[in-house]
């Protein structure tokens, strides 16, 4: 039997890697992947808690999250493509048309 703490370590590690990735990396695609990591870290936690509590609520939410993450990735990549049409490079710091 693997204790629940191990799952939580994995989940929180993934989540924190994703969090830092969004905040520190400047490449748009890596930022998008980091968001996915955050969502999947949360998914692992949900499934582990679901098993721990012996009900299915967490697993149901994890299934929904997978669908939502797919939709989000589709929209996110579409936005990135539409930006690439008008400029080259994928550095998030180059996006400076809108600023104070």
């Amino acid at each position: 039997m693997v204790p629940i703490t191990h799952f939580l370590y994995l989940a929180s590690t993934l989540f924190v890697i994703g969090l830092l990735g969004v905040m520190l990396r400047r490449n748009v695609l890596i930022v998008l992947m980091s968001v996915e990591l955050m969502l999947n870290g949360a998914n692992i936690a949900l499934v582990a808690f679901s098993r721990f509590h012996g009900n299915l609520d967490g697993q149901v939410l994890a299934m929904f999250t997978i669908a939502v993450a797919a939709a989000e990735a589709a929209v996110g990549l579409a936005i990135v493509v539409s930006i690439f049409r008008s400029r080259t490079g994928s550095d998030i710091d180059d996006l400076s048309l809108l600023r104070d």
Binding site: L8, A11, F15, G18, L19, V22, V35, M38, L39, G41, A42, N43, A45, L46, A48, F49, S50, F52, H53, D57, G58, L61, T65, V68, E72
Partner: peptide, 14 residues
């Protein structure tokens, strides 16, 4: 923010 929300929900559920 949806990543934060989901992790928050996971912890509350836990």
């Amino acid at each position: 923010s949806s990543g934060l929300l989901l992790m928050g929900i996971a912890l509350v559920y836990g």
